[in-house]
Nucleic acid binder design. Structure first.
Lengths: 253, 253
DNA sequence: GATCATAGTCGTCTGCCTGACGATAATCAG
DNA sequence: CTGATTATCGTCAGGCAGACGACTATGATC
């Protein structure tokens, strides 16, 4: 294990972000259009270089804020209205993943509520929310006329797929699905998050029983809302519980 | 997102290994003694630089083979007798984690059966299996006379703790516990793996019912053994199933 | 060889949780 | 007022897990 500082290969280190949200009953990811080669004009995940004196999580939080205006959640602070969950996903370092040089990318996963306003910064033509199926669909089933038909740049399709799978499995045994909801939400809204992330339909009655019967998962705020139509629904906030036991298993195929 | 190859900070990238095994009913990790500063003489996780044209997984497999003679499992090949499970764990990149320079370490988790022979290569004084509790015990409860009393070098205690937690949670919902067993093993041996990893006692009858009743988890080889004493036990191999559904939840506290 | 300790294997019972689904409640659109 | 929509409560059967009794097959000990 030689440790001569001049005797190691130099790498570039980046962070790439899988930013997920639920809009219109569909799981969407943030994509940016590349303005330079390689893959110029293609869609890619947001990301950028880690600075020389910057922690990986800090770099991911900075990129997230630059692209979306969202703040990474700090457990020691009260939750601001534009907080997103941020966690490290995995690291991708295939020597050929970037044709120009050796780049190791530490991918992060961010889960955000549906943003009412377009993102701060960046122009609307080069950054957008897109349903994950269309981003992952390499065969162009979403139509040749769509500029989303081309696969994502670099190995970003793989990174996105890994991030989606992480989100899908993690909401099974944690309360992470609330990260997709605004601060106050109804049981039905939370159920639609599960349905969008898993791509299945859930029984509203059993779901209601499960989430309201799990101690610490939801705390009622006392208010009600009819924003979904129909009978007014109770509003809840996320409770302190982070681990669901027993988990809510997604339905079999 | 500027991409000028000369305009990015240079990082060193290493892989560190959390190699776990079960010996004498106790979860143990591989530790190496550092021969040079910083942290000279302290115990650390095995690891080393990623080579200029080497994939991260390949670097981890190489280090694993160098330290233990174990081969990383390749799903496309028949399982050799000295195969170990290897997966990426997480990446650690605090700017101050190495006092000499900026080093980003991609930690990997390896699960291996108890090795009957000492490791090939390396001398016995600088590499050893140690119970994870003693490695993680920073307060020296294992005695000042033990050279294990000092905490692990760098942020390796944190990495080890993350690896142990990954292993603990992953054997809940996967068949990964078989990676700690030899190719053929009994239900009782598998149960002792769970008990060692979780640090709890499990009911032998319920455990037997669960693992033999889960399709694809275990396949009987037809043989029996009495190496544990008592009534001869059936021998099994790991089946094709990798996901346990429903999972085997570890008992509450 | 009888006895004992040890480990493995098969059953039983009870309670909890889930999936399926009926029924009722409270709103809005016509 | 009627119907559509969503929320919420209840019921029931099946599956699974925890607790634990019973029996089996070996080696060790007397």
């Amino acid at each position: 294990m030689p440790y001569d500082p001049s005797a190691f290969p130099a790498f570039a280190v980046t962070v790439d972000l899988v930013v997920l949200t639920v809009r219109r009953h569909s799981l969407c990811a943030l994509a940016v259009r590349r303005g330079e080669p390689p893959f110029k004009g293609r869609w890619a995940l947001p990301g950028g270089f880690v600075r020389a004196d910057e922690d990986l999580a800090a770099a991911a939080a900075r990129e997230l804020a630059e692209e979306t205006g969202l703040l990474a959640q700090d457990p020691t602070l009260p939750v601001p209205p534009n907080a997103a969950h941020l966690e490290q996903l995995a690291t991708y370092g295939d020597p050929k993943r970037d044709p120009r040089m050796r780049v190791v990318s530490v991918a992060h996963l961010a889960l955000a509520p549906d943003l009412p306003a377009p993102r701060a910064g960046g122009d609307a033509h080069s950054v957008r929310w897109a349903p994950v199926e269309s981003l992952l669909d390499q065969d162009g089933a979403f139509g040749r006329d769509s500029d989303l038909a081309a696969p994502l740049a670099f190995d970003h399709a793989r990174i996105l797929a890994d991030g989606v799978e992480r989100a899908r499995s993690k909401i099974e045994y944690s309360s992470l699905a609330t990260a997709f909801c605004p601060q106050e939400f109804t049981v039905g809204e939370l159920r639609r998050v599960y349905e969008a992330v898993w791509g299945v339909a859930l029984d509203p009655r059993n779901f209601h029983r499960k989430v309201t019967g799990t101690p610490g998962f939801l705390v009622p705020t006392g208010g009600t809302t009819t924003r979904q139509g129909g009978r007014p629904a109770q509003l809840f906030r996320a409770g302190g519980a982070t681990l669901l036991n027993p988990p809510m298993l997604r339905p079999e195929v």
